[in-house]
Amino acid sequence: MSIIRTDKLVFEYTRKDEENNVTETVRAIDGVDLDIEKGDFIAILGRNGSGKSTLAKHINALLYPTGGTIWVGGMDTKDDAKLWDIRQTAGMIFQNPDNQMVASVIEEDVGFGPENMGVPTEEIWKRVAHSLEAVGMTAYAKKSPNHLSGGQKQRIGIAGVLAMRPQCIVMDEPTAMLDPIGRREVIKTVHELNKTEHITVILITHYMEEAVDADHVFVMEHGQVKLQGTPREVFSRVDELKALNMSVPQVTELAYELKKSGVDIPDGILKIEELTEALCHLN
């Protein structure tokens, strides 16, 4: 069953000069067709300005298409009556962890979404406890978010979305402002949620390492999907990725380089063990 589907999705906006004359029309999304299965872990890659964030905001009905259609859980986002259902179905995590926290106590921040949805008080507390546990932050429930690390703040953000019982979480570069420890911590958390809570994850990032374990990868450029497939398929196309200003994990690049020099190893190596294994079998 598909959770998110788009049909020739287009989003245009105009830039205006001081006299309010249109100077430029920008097509941020240019005919994107997606069909994302429930329970999948999806990674969307692309350089800054490739349209990936704009796409993310469509899934949460924060932006509406200027052409084509997007369905979230079967609901057309242009249907105003479904707005809150759509936002509850697809939760969103943003880049800057500080700018998405409303409350000064962690558990209250996690409860913010359910409060807005009108969930009864007792049920909110149950959901908050469960969500904090799911992201491993129960010990911090009564603390202030100000003294947390970036990775912990993002996990609180995730708990806040989780408390709304979404089917899908869209993450718009959730690790861009984090250090390597924080990055690992967040990616590990979403993978766990994907497995244990069966939540569809759409991870937008420009760190290739984070896409290695995804079920499906899309690479965007100029508002279009340029490459897609399993990580193995996509990452085997090192030159194309480089042309799109993307890098690949060092192991993939090394394997690719070795293959170019005539070493007989398979395409699309993603992990260190795969490379050592392949090299061992050469004799």
Partner: peptide, 21 residues
């Protein structure tokens, strides 16, 4: 950013809101 994040979490003013406390 915050306004967008609040909207994404279904904030729409005080109507129909429940309270944790």
């Amino acid at each position: 950013d915050l306004a967008m994040a609040m909207e994404a979490r279904c904030y729409h003013g005080g109507d129909g809101r429940t309270k944790m406390h």
